[in-house]
Design a protein around this nucleic acid. Sequence first.
DNA 1: TTATTTGTATTATAATTAGTAATACAATAA
DNA 2: TTATTGTATTACTAATTATAATACAAATAA
Lengths: 126, 126
Amino acid sequence: MLLKLDFSSDVPIYLQIRNQIVMGIAEGKLSPGEKLPTVRALAVESGINVMTVNKAYALLKQEGYILADRRSGAIINPDIAKPGFISDKTKNDLKLVISEIKLAGVSREELLNLCGQLYDETGETR
Amino acid sequence: MLLKLDFSSDVPIYLQIRNQIVMGIAEGKLSPGEKLPTVRALAVESGINVMTVNKAYALLKQEGYILADRRSGAIINPDIAKPGFISDKTKNDLKLVISEIKLAGVSREELLNLCGQLYDETGETR
DNA sequence: TTATTTGTATTATAATTAGTAATACAATAA
DNA sequence: TTATTGTATTACTAATTATAATACAAATAA
């Protein structure tokens, strides 16, 4: 697990860590169940603070990409085995928007139509 | 159009304005096409700065709830006539999440299933 | 037990962002 | 022209964010 951190970037360090781990999973460089380096190891190796690494891990944990506790350390969430996995955070974001739409008085069918349409016309992001 | 602003609230003033206008529309107190007070009128009446009102208007404009330009002043968007109206912002939020999900390798059917499920189990927000 | 290793809570600090405002401006209409 | 509209620029303060130093709690290994 080697990270390439750009300290002059305006993307915060903890986010760079988080992003590279997510991409590592997506590219298959990190496998579900695989052990991640300890927060301390990563911190020393990268010359940054433990809590900066922890912030990345906490975020990944909250998003459902990794599991982390005091005994076992951090591992890639085994449930991301197959493609089609939707993170907790993404699912939550979706739920929030759908709530708003429902409250706006949009019917179930209208919503599903819109979602399908957006799915079709959607390419890339970020 | 009378606004009730709470200056000791931790909801920023411009958001209070925005929210009360959105609710006003939802409750039928403000009709599509109806003229809104000028930024100056609202500012003086409420004892706040013009630009604070403008920030609310700019947000409402961006969200698609009102139309505003230099000639006509600001009016409620006539297209919000019927319930079921989805604001530009909401539509954009939805598009963003769906993009992420699509990129995660989720199929169209899976997405629609999830959306339907979330629609059903969703009650309130905020 | 004690020592060590894990993630995390607390606290601090510098930098950035957000909320509000004073003022000036551009476009339109009368 | 003059008055009215929304908006751009700028500034100032308060709140938030990113990072870090340090201490702690839970678990395991010795």
